[in-house]
């Protein structure tokens, strides 16, 4: 039952992603991206992570997408046919085949199916993550500071 429930947003996500490159207007592409964000948070909800789904919805749809609408997509500036469809489809199919074949042919998937541990034990993975949590927090903090600091800097350089 859960498989079928996840299958619907999964298909809609792939269709929405393709629509970004098919639609000519950037506003429509941004709406399609917001649709993908909503479906992504829906999948989070199906994976029993309601808090993360809510945060994802607030940040990506409420923050990033709205900022994208207001800042870029609302003015239809510089519209032109932007994507070579055949090149897009060819690269996507080849890359998907390479990544999926590379993952499924490796021993990692087989060991995951046998031991339910994806080739590594839960304890070792949890330990490695706990040792990198501080660096991840530091990277996040640096990125936020960089984003905030870039605005007065660019204003001083008369870019904005």
């Amino acid at each position: 039952m859960v498989y079928a429930l996840v299958l619907v947003p999964a298909i809609l996500m792939i269709v929405g992603t393709a629509l970004i490159f098919v639609l000519k207007d950037t506003m429509h592409a941004a709406v399609s991206l917001a649709f993908i964000f909503i479906l992504n948070s829906l999948i989070f909800l199906m994976l029993d992570q309601p808090l993360l789904a809510l945060i994802q919805l607030f940040i990506m749809v409420g923050g990033v997408s709205v900022y994208l609408f207001v800042g870029v997509a609302s003015s239809s500036y510089s519209n032109f046919k932007h994507t070579n469809y055949f090149l897009f489809a060819g690269i996507a199919i080849v890359l998907f085949a390479i990544t999926a074949y590379g993952a499924y042919s490796s021993n990692a998937f087989q060991s995951y199916q046998l031991t339910n541990s994806f080739g590594i034990s839960e304890a070792s993975a949890a330990f490695s993550m706990s040792s990198t949590i501080i660096s991840l927090y530091a990277i996040t903090f640096m990125l936020f500071i960089l984003a905030l600091g870039s605005l007065p800097l660019l204003n001083r350089l008369r870019v904005t």
Partner: peptide, 17 residues
């Protein structure tokens, strides 16, 4: 999704896209 994103970067020439 990753393949579609990479293919979009490779095949598109619009900065926003």
């Amino acid at each position: 999704l990753f393949s579609l994103g990479v293919a979009g970067i490779a095949s598109s020439k619009h900065f926003v896209i």
